[in-house]
């Protein structure tokens, strides 16, 4: 993937420590309003970590805090041992070079072609020549099945294609961590399943760590290894574990109802939690 290691940002040492992203007692919100508090979680290197919860619980807000768009009200957030929110802006900018983000809408820059969208980060942060950048852009777009759209404008492609192009842009600088904000939202089931396959392939092929915000259960059960469940009423995480384990073993009524698409949050039949654990009990 990396044809010119001397020109691209230095790849991180992926052998350092098992935990890549770590949050401890993080509180997030806007102004004085607290959206979520007491968030503690570890994202292991190479894993696919799901941030789950109902609408309005603060999933995307947590993601914004993890990618540097919203400063947490309190708590610590470390990226590979480095405290993210301490130090000057340049420190965060340097850490962000290790991130790739796929926004909910794709967020392609509308004034430039799909190819230019992928090329811009390479032009800004590498000293590769135009020919090499063009090849890398073709490669990234090829990985997501979008090489034919290289010269199209974002307004000329469909919503699913925008997401795939956004994914190609997120991978432009070979990031260590890919963040996905509701990747399946607005996609039909087949396109959504293909995107899941793509995410798994990219994780296995690139060795990237993936953090995904979603409430698309089939997608989460398919791809996620670990996760956290945020509750909108208590404004705290109420469960940790993989979506599959939470589905099969969680005794928390809210988590159980969410994982089984039930309207009622009455307590499920008592069953010991073997893998998925409730936050207040683990």
């Amino acid at each position: 993937m990396n044809p010119s290691a001397s020109s691209l940002p230095a790849p991180s040492d992926r052998t350092r420590g098992d935990v890549l992203l770590s949050l401890r007692d993080v509180t997030i919100g806007y102004g004085k309003k607290v959206i979520q508090k007491n968030i503690s979680m570890d994202v292991k290197r190479g894993s696919i970590f799901a941030i789950m919860g109902g609408s309005g619980c603060g999933k995307s807000t947590l993601l914004r805090a993890m990618i540097g768009l919203l400063r947490p009200q309190s708590g610590t957030y470390t990226v590979d041992g480095d405290e993210y929110w301490t130090g000057p802006d340049s420190h965060r900018t340097a850490l962000n070079r290790r991130f790739g983000v796929l926004f909910q809408s794709g967020a392609l820059w509308s004034s430039m072609t799909v190819g230019d969208n992928v090329a811009l980060p390479l032009e800004m942060f590498t000293r590769l020549d135009d020919e090499m950048i063009r090849r890398l852009v073709e490669l990234k777009l090829g990985l997501v099945g979008m090489s034919h759209a290289i010269d199209l404008m974002p307004s000329e492609i469909s919503g699913g294609m925008k997401k795939r192009a956004g994914l190609a842009r997120a991978m432009a600088l070979d990031p260590d961590v890919l963040f996905f904000d509701e990747p399946s939202a607005g996609l039909d089931p087949i396109t959504s399943a293909r995107l899941d396959d793509l995410i798994l392939t990219l994780r296995d092929g690139l060795g990237a760590t993936i953090v995904i915000v979603s409430h698309e259960l089939p997608s989460l059960f398919t791809i996620a290894d670990d996760g956290i469940f945020l509750d909108a009423e208590t404004h705290t995480p109420i469960a940790h574990g993989s979506p599959r384990d939470l589905r099969d073993h969680s005794t928390n009524p809210m988590v159980h109802a969410f994982m089984h698409r039930e309207a009622s949050t009455d307590a499920p039949p008592a069953e010991p939690a073997t893998k998925g654990t409730n936050s207040n009990g683990h």
Binding site: L69, A107, S110
Partner: peptide, 16 residues
């Protein structure tokens, strides 16, 4: 409009 489409967020995350 770019702000609403998260295009500004994308620039900020890339550090552009």
């Amino acid at each position: 409009t770019m702000l609403g489409n998260e295009e500004i967020d994308a620039l900020q995350v890339f550090g552009i």
